[in-house]
Write a protein that binds this DNA or RNA. Structure first.
Length: 363
DNA sequence: TGTGTTCTAGATGTGCTAAG
DNA sequence: CTTAGCACATCTAGAACACA
């Protein structure tokens, strides 16, 4: 699995090197053990310069150079670093440390007589960014806003980019990225020559969104954690007054009547935060401790007015059964799944069955 | 004119390094 | 060991551009 990625990265780096230098490197081994140490690969240099063991590092910029150096020095054979991208500063340091390297955009340092290679300052380009694993903008923070919008209202994908941008509150430029990302990942089809975009694999797309949301988007929305004086504080709060929405367990309770909420989640426009916290008598939660009466507060990221009722975009299946002052079912579903709690999971299942499944059915 | 695509500047985020 | 500032990379909004 991981080995496969490593090999691909190595192949890509070799290709970049060959394109850059017109020299040839052969990959003579991939992912094996030598003296109980794993080696990601082995390459054969041109001009009988010999062989080098390969240590593959994805995301090298965020790794510790010293640690990498040690790892490579400790290899049972003379080794080199193969990375996605080596920036000029790192390149210089690696050269000083005497560590050979290759990256996937053509930078290289190899000092193994008779061979001497020193290529730096090659920049990763758009194509590379797009190629890179995880480079699917549909599942980045802003992409997730768009995907959420189209999940709530599948007909929206067929609308002009400008409309989609406006509805989901992102820039025009990002819509293209997301649409292409969805296409690439197989969630969006262009039928016919006329623009007629449709979502497919909607259930899978939902799952993908649910998985990515707490990772990429939710952290950016987080306004803080707070505590209330008593566990029933929320029953007296009218979220609508603040243009706010219950999420998580409280929302689940309202949708299903099944849960007794413990942890509260609320989505609140940032501008109303102070007012809400004051009125509800919430105070900042101490860093750790105390599961009781806690409230997670997030900013809103969707356009309730649009998601909720936009009949000008024809979609027969836009979700009808919204409760006011409560986050859309899909978001609540994601909140619940993210907790990993058994009862929450069950509530999530109920919400899915009642509010989401039919809505995502394809015809 | 309406639509999609590409480019760029600025904002944001992150690890690194130097200073305390 | 912790912190602050720095350098670099990434991300995104919005505009310019291109196309039909």
């Amino acid at each position: 699995m991981r080995a496969k990625q490593d090999i691909e990265l190595l192949q890509e780096a070799v290709k970049a090197f060959e394109a850059e230098t017109n020299l040839t490197i052969d990959i003579v081994g991939e992912g094996f053990f030598d003296n109980h140490r794993e080696i990601d690969g082995m390459i054969e240099l041109p001009y009988q310069a010999g062989r080098l063991g390969v240590e593959v590092k994805n995301w090298a910029q965020h790794a510790n150079i010293g640690a990498i150096a040690n790892q490579i020095k400790a290899m049972p054979v003379e080794g080199m670093l193969v990375a996605d991208y080596i920036n000029p500063a790192m390149a210089e340091r690696l050269r000083k440390l005497g560590i050979h390297f290759l990256d996937t955009v053509g930078n290289a340092y190899i000092n193994k007589p008779p061979l001497y290679i020193w290529v730096i300052n090659k920049k990763p380009n758009q194509a590379h960014k797009q190629l890179k694993e995880g480079g699917n903008r549909a599942f980045d923070a802003t992409g997730l806003k768009v995907v959420f919008g189209v999940l709530c209202n599948p007909g929206l994908v067929a609308a002009p980019y400008r409309k989609i941008a406006e509805q989901t509150d992102v820039a025009l430029g990002t819509v293209g990225w997301v649409v292409n990302g969805l296409k690439e990942a197989g969630y969006l089809l262009d039928r016919g020559k006329k623009k007629d975009r449709r979502l497919t694999e909607r259930q899978k797309l939902l799952e993908r969104w649910v998985e990515a949301y707490p990772e990429k988007l939710q952290p950016k929305l987080k306004l803080g954690e707070f505590v209330a004086d008593n566990p029933h504080w929320w029953e007296a709060v009218d979220t609508e007054k603040y243009d706010a929405f219950w999420g998580g367990e409280i929302a689940a309770a309202k949708y299903t009547g099944y849960l007794k909420p413990k942890m509260a989640t609320v989505y609140l426009p940032e501008a109303r935060r102070g007012q809400f916290l004051a009125d509800a008598r919430l105070r900042k939660a101490p860093d750790h401790v105390g599961a009781g009466n806690r409230v997670k507060v997030y900013g809103t990221f969707w356009r309730p007015d649009r998601v909720n009722a936009n009949r000008e975009i024809k979609d027969t299946k836009a979700i009808e059964k919204y409760l006011t002052g409560v986050a859309p079912p899909i978001l609540v579903y994601a909140d619940l799944i993210a907790t990993g709690d058994g009862r929450n999971r069950e509530a999530a299942r109920m919400i899915h069955e009642r509010y989401i499944a039919e809505h995502l059915r394809e015809d």
